[in-house]
Design a protein around this nucleic acid. Structure first.
Lengths: 229, 229
DNA sequence: CGGGGTATTGAGACAAATCAACCTTGGTGG
DNA sequence: CCACCAAGGTTGATTTGTCTCAATACCCCG
């Protein structure tokens, strides 16, 4: 019912979804959005549930993951304000999503979103670009997990976090996720992940006191380890 | 130019891209298609090249891969007749593609494909469904590479091949790719891949004489190892 | 009848998983 | 205020799965 504070409005307007979009379309989107608050650890999407909404993180951060019957978990990605969440196959989510910290999420019902999509070519274009970007990220991720060794995988993760950080020239990054989260993202155990942090620190590539704050000392070294184009 | 033999016409008509499409749209698509033949090992797409076409494999099979500066290779997937090839980011392919065997590929220039896309909502829907399917496959793939051990990764690969084989109740599958291809697909070396084949054979899950032909002896065991939903 | 590309198998090295101890931090309640 | 506890992080010792290196077998093709 469009009771979205200014934060949400700004977030939406500057998101990839609304790039080059007409004012009226943005307003229409905003009109059907609902802002939801989540506490740390709370689940936004339950794996397998019907996909009745798409989501746009506004503050905080999310973890997207898949858990197998055997209890193994693969973290598919981490989302930050401006990212998009909601792709699905045959109307169901094949992954779950949870808040890494207190987070606010804009929420659009798909049945009311789709008419907008049908009427606005620009919106379609944006959605398809986002879809391609997600695909690209997945290819990078798959490459890292399939081909790199532990410390290089961590470099890939940290480099990605760093480049996505709004503070582009900032050397410090905030790491809202746990070692277990990072491990499951990289296909490693939490112990190996921790050792990889230690190794990058010993090599002088990063420095950190707090486990949830890291300073990039040598971005070039980190980047070449990460091998991101 | 529409000089496509019957094979191509049938292939196109039954592809996911043309599901529920009007006759006229299929004809329009066919009109701008060109059928290209590739020999075993020949490259269809060079990694990094401008994306000027999209592709629809008609016969044979393809390998989609990414090679890093360091020479490591991650095979992103294998394509068979009816599959789709052509997603890209900012107009360039972030992967290469090559023929695993003699193959024929239908080829649509993007600049002439996009007007069709703009005019036909059904075609857009199909493309978006395909995009979601690719995404889904990538999630499965990432899960396998990130969380499974060698023989379970191979089970995942074989199970996927089996389910996609046109012959659904057939127990035999043809494996056009080499052990190195499979290894790079699964994040393993070719030796480990070969050992995994031997292990599945010793466990009585598969049987094979020829390395490029495998019979699924115990589909349930294979499926539970693969853990595909 | 070679000969290159491919597959299998073995032995040893090595990276990551596993098992386990210990430390820190933040929150809770006596 | 401090004891207590739980959750997360680091580090160490050991095991194990996969990689690496190497030898041999195979087979299609020229």
């Amino acid at each position: 019912m469009a009771k979205s504070p200014k934060l949400a409005e700004d977030m939406l307007a500057h998101s990839d979804l609304c790039r080059d979009l007409s004012q009226s379309s943005v307003q229409a989107l905003l009109a059907l959005a609902r802002l939801e608050d989540y506490t740390s650890g709370q689940r936004i999407i339950e794996q397998g549930q019907r996909a009745t909404s798409i989501y746009l993180p506004c503050s905080g951060s999310l973890r997207v993951e898949r858990v197998s019957a055997g209890g193994q978990r693969q973290v598919m990605g981490f989302l930050f304000p401006g990212d998009f969440l909601g792709f699905n196959s045959s109307g169901h989510f094949l992954y779950g999503a949870a808040a890494l910290e207190a987070s606010a999420v804009l929420c659009f019902p798909t049945d009311r979103f789709e008419p907008l999509l049908a009427s606005d070519p620009k919106l379609r274009e944006n959605l398809s670009r986002i879809s391609n970007a997600v695909l690209t990220r997945l290819l990078d991720h798959l490459f890292a997990v399939g081909q790199k060794r532990a410390h290089a995988r961590l470099a890939f993760f940290l480099f990605g976090l760093w480049r996505r950080g709004a503070s582009s020239q900032q050397r410090e990054i905030r790491i809202p996720m746990t070692r277990a989260d990072i491990g499951d993202y990289l296909g490693l155990t939490l112990e190996t992940t921790s050792r990889a942090f230690t190794r990058l620190r010993d090599e002088g590539i990063i420095s950190s006191t707090d486990p949830h704050r890291v300073a990039i000392v040598d971005p070039d070294a980190l980047g070449s380890l990460a091998e991101v184009d």
